[in-house]
Design a protein around this nucleic acid. Sequence first.
DNA 1: GTATTTGTTGTTGC
DNA 2: TGCAACAACAAATA
Length: 290
Amino acid sequence: MPELAEAAFFRKRWHRAGRRCGIVSVHTHDRAKVFRGTDPAALRRTLTGARYLGSEARAKQMSFRFEAGGAHPDGATAWLGVHLGMSGELRVEPFDYEPRKHDHLVLRVADPRRSHDRGRSLVFTDPRMFGRIQFHLGRNPPDWWTRIAPDILSAAFSAEAVGSFLRRRARAPIKAVLLMQERFPGIGNWMADEILWRTAIHPRRLAGSLSPTEIRALWRQCRRVCRSALDTIAGRGDYLPPDLNAHIPRSWLFWHRWDDGGLCPKTGKPLERAEIGGRTTCWSPARQKL
DNA sequence: GTATTTGTTGTTGC
DNA sequence: TGCAACAACAAATA
């Protein structure tokens, strides 16, 4: 499921239920692989009684900040990192929700100033467990958060930066290069295909073969697809769409890429699918030529 | 039984 | 050394 815009959507979903709340109790599925490298017991201890401070989404990751509860110095911030992997989701359930098999982390939260409201459960689910929960206690943000590459919508993501990256990865297919998080943070399989389709570049073209004009067009479409995916999937401002795909236009490749016999929304001609860079890739042969 | 999956990492080999 | 390709991780679904 989760790429850039899906991470933004799920962050917002937890945020709307969790803001102004304190954590009443924490459930962890300790043996789940999603906790690799972190100590679920320490996470439970620190987050129980903690107050929600805020959250951000960057690339495919989320960070939720809490004012640590228990015997911690005043102002100590607890950082909860979430990566949704391939099949992860964040849900909001009733306060008394009973965790199921694939619910690896459940935070029961309540707003202390609204005693008539029993609160909610913030649920992290991930059947395949390629996702990950990380945890850090301290004033400054942890490495796993600060080491995320510069946002595609920031000034640091320049056409020049894209160009020099493509030169270094010259012999790899452009589709594979777009999936590299160190330069294209948040781009996943469907967004990569969407970007190449809009730029009219064949996914099998080698990164080193793109002309300066094509590089610039690719750079622009990276930003456009990120911007419009964030707006339509995660919603603008305070608005949160009822579900992930509620507002994705039919004119996007997104809706057609998995249909057998799917047609290109721009040309009306058949789409093609093949494995490129180790991932199933969809393109429109009528407008993306080798 | 087979093949598929919106992701990342470690290993191998060029 | 740097880069490219691929297996592995795990579980549901068709």
